[in-house]
Computed example of a mutant assay.
Amino acid sequence: MIEAAMIWNEPNNKSHWDLEIDPDWARYGECVRLAGSAIAAVNPGLPRVLGGMSPIDPFWLRQVEAHGALDHVEVVAVHGFPLDWNLWPIHAWPDKIAEIEAVTDKPVWVTEVGVGSFGAEEVQVFGLNRTAELLIDRVPRIFWYSLFDLPQSWGATTRHREAEGSSYYRHFYMGLIREDGSPKPALEDYARVASRMGLMQWFHFEDHRLDEAVRWMRSLGVRQLRTGLSWADYFRPGALDWFDRQMEALAEFDVTVTFCFTPEHLGMVPHHTSAPADPTAFADFCAEMIDRYAPARPALPRAMGA
């Protein structure tokens, strides 16, 4: 059910990790060490992925490595949105991958890449096809963000101001399917590469789109999916029932599950981007989720005389 476990989402992006609390990522490094060890104790064969960095930054990776984090993961991940938020051209993708490969011997996955349709849907078509040309066969895993547009009423997770390049409105146009359920032109192009370029889709707590997403992914021929299980949601009434329903619905796909979002009452400050006051609590959550959805398989008994 779970192909890999990712430890946080975009930890070098202040929209997902409070840099004022943890300016040198020492606390994040501790979270990775503890969570990585806890996951391995439950399922030592499950690949552990460092939270996808955004922006792509080899200097940040070296800083996290200095805190011992890379000793507890097998994969390094990057996120990129060159036609929406990043200050580099889409054609630079191979160079951005090479920058990270130059400072680590671990495989590099692109666990979030996307192009929005805000300016023109034709731009998304171009961006999807160019991304596929540049990254398929270049990296082991690619996850396109996303299948669905973010509903306008939900709000996007960001702590960036417009002056810092937020372009907040773009968050609502990253899907291949509009909020009303109609497909955008890029969906047809995505279908041609769906078996080689997976999808990244967040599912909110009790998300009404879950079953529809499964139907679309099945029809498109998607094999790999990246999604998340929220530590903050774990404390809602009925959380495990929702987690079970979500993971059961996604069982036919190879899922990279992302563990992130601090419960307000367990943060150093009461916000989901806060470093945990006790990183062991986060590690315990990760271990419980792996034990529930991806426990190590017992060895098959050997035949007599083998």
Rank of each mutant, 00 (worst) to 15 (best):
A191F: 08
D180I: 07
A306N: 10
P295V: 11
E3I: 02
P140A: 05
V110Q: 04
V115Y: 02
G68V: 11
G175S: 05
R236L: 15
H160E: 07
W88G: 03
G267E: 06
H160I: 01
V108E: 00
G165Q: 11
W231E: 07
A35R: 05
D180F: 08
R27P: 06
S117D: 08
E65W: 07
H204F: 14
A92L: 05
G36K: 02
A283Y: 01
D84G: 00
Q201M: 07
L300K: 12
E133F: 03
H79C: 11
E264K: 14
D254V: 04
I142T: 09
F243G: 03
L135K: 02
D189I: 06
L187C: 04
G175R: 09
Y145H: 14
W17D: 06
G119Q: 14
M1C: 12
D189H: 15
D22I: 02
D24P: 03
Y168V: 07
G119A: 13
Q224S: 14
A283R: 00
P270R: 07
W216Q: 08
P151W: 08
D105L: 10
H208Q: 13
G68S: 10
Q124I: 00
E206R: 15
G119M: 13
T131C: 10
R141T: 12
P89V: 00
A277F: 08
S274T: 05
A41G: 14
G116A: 05
L70W: 06
N43M: 05
G80I: 06
N12T: 06
F148I: 03
R178Q: 08
I7L: 15
P237K: 05
D291W: 14
R48Q: 01
R170G: 03
W60E: 09
A191T: 12
A294R: 06
I39P: 01
I136R: 14
K96F: 10
F59K: 13
R223I: 10
T131H: 04
P301A: 09
N12I: 06
S54E: 13
I56S: 02
D233L: 06
S37R: 15
P276V: 01
V139K: 09
A120S: 15
L135M: 00
T256Y: 09
Y145D: 11
E252Q: 14
E179M: 04
G221D: 09
I142N: 08
R192V: 11
C260Q: 13
S219T: 12
P107Y: 08
A92K: 03
P183V: 04
